[in-house]
Lab assay of single mutants.
Amino acid sequence: NITNLCPFDEVFNATRFASVYAWNRKRISNCVADYSVLYNFAPFFAFKCYGVSPTKLNDLCFTNVYADSFVIRGNEVSQIAPGQTGNIADYNYKLPDDFTGCVIAWNSNKLDSKVGGNYNYLYRLFRKSNLKPFERDISTEIYQAGNKPCNGVAGFNCYFPLRSYGFRPTYGVGHQPYRVVVLSFELLHAPATVCGPKKST
């Protein structure tokens, strides 16, 4: 009989979020998941679920829940969905086509923008091939755009693969920082350890 609540607040209220190319993952297990707390949290810009209804989450049990978190621009949030393409979905964070879970995003301009620009948040701009679902690539190898080998030196046709967002408070909404948490639900042939409040007695 599990009684402790799942530590969703640790994920959602973290002081610093990860850059999207180096997205953070927390495994959540052996706890009671009260999703209504999240669902009623006012400032969400997006709360979209795939393969599961957000209002039914509290009735369900899962083997594991993974909480992935990172920061992207407002106009990139739409790429955090199954079957998407674009710089983020291709080179930074890719969801599987059969994704079961929820994508939760909110504007973090007050936290993550600075006058003069916040350059701490990076994304991958160049990559030889697209990421596989949930693949994480933190390499900083110089990207070779031409035929000539770069030998690890940036220059003509040789690019550092990461780019900084440089968030400023005055940017338009599409270019403002958004914090994103992706909850993915794993249902294995194993005992369920993460259940909603109704199922955990």
Rank of each mutant, 00 (worst) to 15 (best):
G174K: 08
V52L: 11
S69Q: 05
A190I: 10
G155A: 08
C195L: 12
A42N: 09
F156Q: 06
R136Q: 10
S113P: 01
P169C: 03
I142W: 05
C102V: 05
D137S: 04
L95V: 12
W23T: 01
P54S: 12
C31L: 06
V20N: 03
P177H: 01
K199F: 14
S78Y: 10
H189G: 15
Q144F: 04
I28T: 04
E141G: 12
P191D: 13
L183K: 01
C61D: 10
V115H: 12
P161C: 03
L187F: 11
L187K: 15
Y123F: 15
I80H: 01
N1G: 12
G174Q: 09
I28S: 04
L188V: 13
L111I: 14
F160R: 14
V77H: 04
P177A: 07
N118Y: 05
S129I: 10
V11A: 04
N151C: 09
K114N: 11
N120L: 10
A105Q: 05
P191G: 14
N24R: 15
A81V: 07
P177F: 03
K94H: 10
R25E: 01
C6Y: 06
T85P: 07
Y66G: 02
R27Y: 11
C31M: 06
Y39D: 15
E141W: 07
L60Y: 15
L38H: 04
P82K: 04
D59H: 12
G51N: 14
V182Q: 01
V173G: 07
F8I: 07
N157F: 02
L111A: 13
P149F: 10
G86R: 04
S108R: 02
L162S: 02
E186K: 10
P7I: 08
V103F: 02
D97M: 13
G166N: 06
A33E: 06
Q84D: 03
K56Q: 14
E135Q: 12
P169F: 04
A67K: 03
G172R: 01
G146T: 04
S129Y: 10
I2V: 14
I28F: 15
P169M: 04
Y121R: 03
Q176D: 00
P7E: 13
A145I: 05
G172W: 02
D112G: 03
Y66T: 11
K132W: 08
G86Q: 03
D59R: 11
P43Y: 10
R124V: 00
Y143F: 13
L122D: 10
A105G: 05
I138G: 08
T201Q: 15
Y178I: 13
K114M: 11
C61K: 13
F17I: 05
E10K: 12
V71T: 07
S184Q: 10
T15R: 10
F8M: 08
R179G: 00
F45S: 15
K26I: 12
K114D: 10
P191S: 13
V20W: 03
G117T: 03
A145C: 04
S108T: 12
V180W: 01
C195F: 10
L57C: 05
T3H: 11
F47N: 05
Y21Q: 05
P197Q: 15
V115R: 11
P133D: 06
A42V: 13
S113W: 02
D97V: 12
R179W: 00
V20C: 05
L60E: 09
V180K: 01
P96M: 04
E135G: 09
N30F: 07
S29L: 07
Y93Q: 00
A67H: 03
D90V: 05
N130Y: 10
L111K: 14
H175D: 06
D112W: 03
S129N: 13
Y50R: 04
W106N: 00
V65I: 14
E10S: 11
G74R: 05
I138P: 08
K114G: 06
F156A: 10
V173F: 13
Y165V: 03
V77F: 08
V52Q: 05
R27W: 08
Y121V: 08
A42I: 10
L131S: 02
A46V: 15
T100C: 12
F17C: 04
D97Q: 13
R127Q: 03
A190E: 14
G83Q: 09
T100D: 05
N87S: 14
R27E: 11
P96R: 06
A67Y: 05
Y91W: 07
L187Q: 14
N118H: 06
P197Y: 15
P7A: 12
